[in-house]
């Protein structure tokens, strides 16, 4: 069952991205705050992709951070080792991430629930030792030191580096808008319907000729591509990469975004990303109490906010979305 119709989904996204677009007017002078905004957008892409996989396609994939890192490293290596223009390298990196997605998806999408979670998480776990290993160093990952100098993107004479955060911000906004539209199109298309059918009743879907496996694989590849693209963007923006991104912190943050945004409640994930990144920065001065509070927040929110912030918004703004927010039981 579709929770949001086409119109309200686009309106919602227009509002979020519209608000984001004018934020530099208020905080454009502060690199620190601009960075938070940029990270909001980058994580919004990743969280939306994850939502598409988990919430709509019903695949418990835990490999999202891994594909992000694969994209980041691939793009950095293409641009450094082969001198490819960063913009082109980003797309190539997206392709690499998609290829990895297919490679992982092939054996794994036939598995069930917790097994998929394990295998995809295994990709995450194995990535760090791989990037650090001799094999990793041979392809230019810089081993345990990481990559220290990644050239920034350059388009129309504008350098999108960490020193020019306003430019990076609008590039990130464009990327986020494009990715969100793609995700929305997927959800609205035949595929989205197919997925919900698969999720609700596999047998029924099969009888209609919907091949769960093929659809899942394509969506897996697509989200890996977009996530890899976001990772590549991140790499060229920050200008440095290390395996330390694969720590548990980032993974949990991403999950919190989904919890807050609501699983399968796109575009809630975008709002979830914005709220989580901002809250995380605000809690930063608290040191060790920050993850403590984040953890408690997850527990409380999962219990009290089953449909994430979107569900809450809908409860307080009645009439806007007449559709019932409760999912069908299955």
């Amino acid at each position: 069952m579709m929770n949001m119709n086409w119109k309200s989904m686009s309106a919602f996204m227009a509002v979020i991205f519209g608000v984001m677009a004018i934020m530099p007017l208020f905080v454009g002078g502060s690199d620190h705050l601009m960075h938070i905004l940029i990270m909001c957008l980058i994580w919004a892409i990743v969280a939306s992709c994850w939502d598409l996989i988990m919430g709509f396609a019903g695949i418990f994939s835990f490999g999202q951070v891994a594909f992000f890192v694969i994209g980041a490293y691939a793009s950095a290596i293409f641009s450094i080792q082969f001198g490819i223009n960063p913009v082109a390298a980003m797309f190539l990196a997206g392709m690499v991430a998609a290829a990895c997605g297919i490679l992982v998806g092939l054996p794994c999408l036939r598995l069930k629930g917790a097994y998929i979670a394990l295998v995809t998480f295994a990709v995450h776990m194995i990535l760090e030792p791989f990037l650090k290993s001799g094999m990793g160093r041979a392809i230019g990952t810089g081993g345990s030191q990481g990559i220290m100098t990644i050239p920034p993107m350059e388009l129309f004479g504008i350098v999108f580096s960490a020193d020019n955060k306003i430019a990076v911000f609008y590039a990130a906004l464009l990327l986020a808008v494009v990715c969100s539209i793609i995700i929305m199109l997927v959800i609205r298309s035949f595929w989205g319907t197919a997925f919900l059918a698969i999720k609700d009743s596999k047998d029924f879907a099969a009888s209609l000729g919907v091949s769960a496996f093929r659809h899942k694989l394509v969506v897996f590849a697509l989200t890996s591509f977009l996530t890899g693209l976001a990772g590549a963007f991140y790499g060229h923006y920050v200008g440095m990469l290390s395996t330390r991104m694969l720590g548990i912190d980032l993974f949990v943050m991403l999950m919190i975004m989904l919890v807050i945004g609501g699983i399968g409640k796109f575009p809630g994930a975008i709002l979830g990303a914005i709220i989580t990144v901002t809250a995380n920065e605000m809690l930063a001065p608290l040191g060790p109490y920050r993850p403590l509070i984040l953890g408690a927040m997850v527990v409380v929110l999962v219990l009290l906010l089953p449909d994430g912030i979107i569900g809450l918004v809908r409860r307080f703004i009645p009439g806007k979305n007449p559709a019932d927010s409760r999912s069908p039981s299955g």
């Binding site: 502060s30 990481g146 920050v238 440095m240 990469l241 720590g247 930063a284």
Partner: peptide
């Protein structure tokens, strides 16, 4: 400032927060 696990973006954010902000 909590640098956590030294992810590149965290390190940069530390500089932007402490010195920049």
């Amino acid at each position: 400032f909590d640098t956590q696990e030294f992810a590149p973006e965290r390190v940069m954010q530390g500089a932007d927060y402490l010195v920049g902000n």
